[in-house]
Design a binder for these strands. Structure first.
Lengths: 145, 145
DNA sequence: ATCCAACTTTGTAATCATTACAAATAAGTA
DNA sequence: TACTTATTTGTAATGATTACAAAGTTGGAT
């Protein structure tokens, strides 16, 4: 049982073909905690798949999002969409200096989600809970100057 | 005391000049609950300020965000940045069909913010709490078809 | 094992919101 | 009123993402 089997299972359940490109993207997504962008995925996989097209990366990510297998975190500070393979309710912290993104788990995220789905007039299908600030390292770098 | 005085006060405190363009944008922001984009602000104000440049709208919005007077909500489903003049901690609900955005107030938002600022290694400077789904009207439209 | 229809991948071109830039203009103080 | 500096404007550039059509591949059917 490989870690990416969950993503692959999503593809299979969705009736999508298991191409080498898609499998490689799934593997990268689960072995990567950096919340990658389409660009960064493309760069990393080009070594093993020299012909991999950026369009294919975009298509696969879009398919995985549509299947609910990963989440689209929206644009980072540089204007690039980032993705998250962790789909349990949690917040994401985005460094406004280096664009590093980390997960932050808190029971309040689920409590808020319950409140929104219970009290709002919208039929909720997704969420983004994002906090912006300076990561530890960028705080230290700032102190030096 | 006009409603937009809060935004204007932010500009003044920031040492920025009170140009007619900026005042008009501030007035529109506080009288508008639609969470406008730069484009929509530009279109609405062009009637009274035919020479108003889109660049000026972008510059003014960026300045207001920098001063903490308004919030940048990030991209809507169409890829356009939307702004929110309501700066107390709350969630925003975004309709994935019509792009309507509404405010949703919940005590859990503040509780989560406190948890993040207290427990995370980041020095938090901003937040976006967004939920995606279908608004009431789009749910009804969907049922008809 | 092979075939084939449908789905995928690829590469390029187009899109579109946003940003950069420099000349023209206006705010606000002396 | 005059002047210094910030601001506005219009246009051009940017850059991530999407559209598209031809070439290639998957996976079930034969």
């Amino acid at each position: 049982m490989f870690a990416e089997s969950s993503l692959i299972e999503h593809l299979r359940q969705g009736g999508l073909r298991l191409t080498p490109q898609r499998l490689a993207i799934c593997q990268l997504l689960v072995n990567n905690t950096e919340h990658p962008s389409a660009q960064s995925i493309h760069e990393q996989l080009r070594q093993d798949y020299p012909s991999l097209s950026l369009t294919t990366v975009y298509n696969t990510l879009e398919a995985l999002v549509r299947l609910g297998a990963i989440h689209n975190l929206g644009n980072d500070v540089g204007g690039t969409v980032r993705y998250d393979a962790e789909t349990t309710p949690h917040a994401n912290l985005i460094c406004t200096s280096c664009n590093r993104i980390i997960d932050f788990h808190s029971p309040h995220v689920q409590a808020l989600a319950n409140d929104v789905t219970g009290r709002s007039p919208y039929r909720i299908t997704g969420a983004r809970v994002l906090y912006y600030g300076l990561c530890e390292q960028c705080q230290q770098n700032q102190e030096k100057s």
